[in-house]
């Protein structure tokens, strides 16, 4: 590392003028978003500062317990967010439960895989590697799981007569739901595929940019980014398959009947 330029509070204050300029724009043009904009900016500052404090503490202790606890909190927030993004989630705790369980499975498997093989910090659960890695994988897995579930529950509700037509003719539940399941998995994977295709041409990923600003040589940062993209696509695929198949199972029963009564009606 060749060192980096540290930021002072005054530097941030200067940057925040741009947000204030946006707020003034909203007032002048009657956009009505200035309140939400300022609240979101304040939330961002508070949440990230808290995260900074938490990470500083975690890094200085390297405790498997506290690292695990932080990971659990991140996963629970991701589960809540994935549920909130659906129009008609599964009723009861099923939506949150299935979403969270599949994200836990996918994100932790992929994170542990990377920590024990490619990255190999000592100990493997060193929070300086584990937490940022989990955060990146989890964030993308969450998007995939939320899109997959949204598309599944909407698709089943809208294509009810098509699904039931196959059931009536003696198809099993997974045969009957096949087209809806495939569409859901496709829409879950689309963001990862698109971002892999556009990365480096249209966009410079945030992590790589951060490393370069932090003084890492570009080729080193690029290698990290390539690994991260692989991990993200693995996590998204695994998480979406688990969440979509689990929910498809819950949307039908052992007699192979379609159970739309198990969706929240809005």
């Amino acid at each position: 590392m060749t060192g980096y330029i540290a930021l002072s509070a005054a530097d941030l204050a200067l940057g925040s003028l741009l947000v204030l300029a946006n707020a003034l724009l909203s007032l002048a043009l009657h956009l009505g978003v200035h309140r939400r904009l300022l609240i979101a900016a304040v939330r961002m500052v508070v949440q990230l500062s808290l995260m900074g404090v938490v990470l500083t503490t975690l890094f200085s202790h390297v405790s498997p317990l506290w690292t695990g606890l932080a990971a659990l909190m991140m996963i629970l927030f991701a589960g809540r967010e994935a549920t909130a993004r659906q129009d008609r989630p599964l009723a009861g705790w099923w939506s949150f439960g299935l979403g969270t369980a599949s994200m836990t499975l996918a994100a932790s498997l992929v994170t542990i895989f990377a920590l024990t093989t490619a990255l190999g910090p000592d100990p493997w659960y060193d929070p300086r590697y584990a937490i940022p890695l989990l955060g990146m994988i989890l964030g993308n897995t969450m998007t995939g799981v939320a899109l997959g579930l949204h598309s599944l529950t909407n698709g089943v509700a809208l294509r009810r007569s098509a699904v039931e037509a196959r059931l009536m003719l003696g198809a099993s539940r997974f045969e009957a739901l096949g087209p809806v399941i495939r569409d859901s998995l496709r829409s879950a994977l689309m963001p990862v595929i698109n971002s892999m295709a556009a990365t480096g041409v249209v966009s410079l990923p945030g992590m790589m940019t951060g490393q370069i600003l932090g003084g890492v040589a570009p080729m080193e940062a690029v290698k990290y980014q390539i690994l991260i993209m692989f991990l993200i696509s693995g996590g998204t695929g695994l998480g979406a398959v688990a969440a979509v198949l689990g929910s498809a199972r819950r949307l039908t029963d052992s007699r192979h009947r379609l159970r739309l009564d198990r969706l929240t009606s809005r």
């Binding site: 007569s161 098509a162 699904v163 099993s172 192979h256 009947r257």
Partner: peptide
Amino acid sequence: MSGPQWRQLVGYLPAEPGWW
């Protein structure tokens, strides 16, 4: 018997059949 086996023996034609 399973649901699918039953529905192969007992066919149903609804008023508005579905298409997949």
